[in-house]
Simulated scan of single mutants.
Amino acid sequence: VCLLDRNGLRPARWVTTKNGYITLASEIGVWDYKPEDVIAKGRVGPGQIFAVDTETGQILDTDAIDNRLKSRHPYKRWLRQHALRIQATLTDDQGVASYDADQLKQYMKMFQVTFEERDQVLRPLGEQGQEAVGSMGDDTPMA
Rank of each mutant, 00 (worst) to 15 (best):
C2S: 11
L3T: 13
L3W: 05
L4S: 13
D5T: 02
R6W: 08
N7E: 14
N7I: 00
G8R: 09
T16R: 09
T16G: 08
G20Y: 09
Y21W: 11
Y21L: 15
I22W: 05
L24E: 05
A25T: 02
S26I: 04
V30F: 10
W31N: 15
W31G: 10
D32W: 04
D32P: 04
Y33G: 09
P35A: 15
P35I: 12
E36D: 14
D37L: 04
V38W: 03
V38N: 03
I39V: 15
K41S: 13
K41I: 05
P46C: 06
P46W: 06
I49L: 15
T54E: 11
T54R: 05
E55W: 11
T56H: 06
T56L: 00
Q58Y: 08
I59G: 03
L60E: 01
A64C: 00
I65R: 00
D66K: 08
D66P: 01
D66A: 00
D66C: 11
N67I: 00
N67D: 06
R68Q: 14
L69A: 09
H73N: 13
K76H: 09
K76V: 12
W78R: 07
W78Q: 13
R80M: 08
Q81T: 12
H82F: 11
A83V: 14
A83S: 09
A83C: 15
A88I: 03
T91L: 10
D92M: 10
D93G: 12
G95C: 03
V96C: 06
S98W: 11
D100E: 12
D102M: 06
Q103T: 06
L104K: 03
L104S: 10
M108A: 06
M108Y: 04
F111A: 07
T114Y: 00
E116I: 02
E116Y: 02
D119E: 15
Q120G: 01
V121D: 15
L125V: 03
G126W: 05
G129P: 07
G129C: 04
G129Q: 07
A132Y: 01
A132V: 06
G134A: 07
S135P: 04
D138C: 06
D139V: 12
